[in-house]
């Protein structure tokens, strides 16, 4: 099958501590596959390759192409992407997280909540969010062994036009190792929520609470531009267009360079490259941490990775 990429994490243990952390996000070279293609065809291929956020990827491609042709999109909440973001949050919170915490997956609640989101039924989602299960889930979260916040910055919410000041052009180096003001930064619901942690119980819980907060916000009709589902695009001159979309996992950027009606270059900067940067939050949480027994270490890493939520498979290698 086509490999959409993977995150490889290598730890070296010395004297029962994590002495070295190497994080590599490996992605296919999409530009190579798209270069020279008719632009209209290329923007249809992209969501096939990166299908986990298919709607966001498809929209990012379309908006970037329009911007390359001079049609900009000011920041707006895209209802379809917003629904995709909320459904992703529900999947993570009701199916993935319970399993990580030793609780049964909440299939019935998930299906009810999905229905509510898909039909715009905000009170219906509130009813699901008010179920007793959430208290149990959040209590288990608070009991987790988890780190304090690290030093990694949070990527601010920005529009495509504002992003031009940070990166005049995107390129393969930025796509592989994105930096904000010269440093690694985290993106996603937690960053969009301004790094708030209502329980102060640790870094993992804070990220799950932020996903939950976006669900509550939507159910109360309080979502604003800047929340998950926000989209914008800017004309970067000379046949170059850039789009930004806030997906469930964080900021997604596409930049298309046209040569007539064909793709001259195509750069995608995905949230996973921010959140699994070699010196990002995962590094903060792991480096120097005691690693006395193997089971606890793997449990901790599973929780850390789930909190950051890569959009590709991950693999762990521990060297002793």
């Amino acid at each position: 099958m086509l490999d959409a990429g993977r995150v490889h994490i290598q730890l070296r243990l010395v004297a029962d501590r994590i002495a070295e952390v190497e994080i590599r996000s490996q992605r296919p070279n999409v530009a190579r596959a798209l270069r020279g293609k008719p632009a209209a065809q290329a923007v249809q291929l992209v969501p096939l390759i990166f299908a986990l956020c298919g709607r966001a990827q498809g929209q990012a491609a379309g908006l970037a192409l329009a911007a390359a042709r001079g049609v900009e999109t000011p920041p707006m909440l895209d209802a379809a992407i917003e629904i995709e973001v909320l459904r992703e949050h529900l999947w993570r919170l009701l199916l993935d997280l319970p399993a990580l915490l030793g609780l049964p997956a909440q299939r019935e609640l998930f299906l009810k909540a999905q229905q509510a989101v898909a039909t715009g039924d905000q009170p219906g989602l509130q009813t699901v969010l008010a179920q007793e299960f959430w208290n149990e889930l959040l209590q288990r979260l608070d009991e987790l062994v988890q780190p304090e916040e690290g030093v990694t910055a949070l990527l601010p919410v920005m529009s495509a036009r504002q992003s031009l000041a940070a990166w005049s052009r995107l390129n393969a180096d930025i796509a592989a190792l994105p930096l904000w003001q010269g440093e690694a930064a985290e993106t996603g619901a937690y960053a969009r929520w301004g790094g708030q942690n209502p329980t102060a119980s640790g870094a993992f819980a804070a990220r799950w609470h932020a996903r939950s907060a976006e669900l509550w916000s939507w159910s109360a009709g309080e979502q604003k531009v800047g929340a998950g589902g926000t989209a914008s695009a800017a004309d970067n001159g000379a046949g170059v267009g850039r789009s930004l979309i806030d997906t469930a996992r964080g900021l997604l950027m596409h930049e298309i360079t046209l040569d007539g009606d064909r793709i001259a270059d195509y750069v995608i900067v995905a949230p996973t490259e921010w959140n699994f940067h070699p010196r990002g939050s995962l590094f903060d949480w792991l480096h120097g941490r005691p690693a006395v027994d193997d089971a606890s270490l793997r449990e901790f890493i599973s929780q850390a990775i789930a909190a950051l939520d890569p959009c590709v498979r991950w693999e762990l290698e521990v060297i002793k």
Binding site: P28, R32, A33, V43, L45, P47, L48, R55, G58
Partner: peptide, 22 residues
């Protein structure tokens, strides 16, 4: 095929229609 270095690709993309994956 493109990622593997192949350059003759037209046969692979006969007629992608207007709908993308949703």
């Amino acid at each position: 095929a493109a990622l593997a270095g192949e350059t003759q690709l037209d046969g692979y993309f006969p007629d992608l229609t207007s709908t993308t994956v949703r």
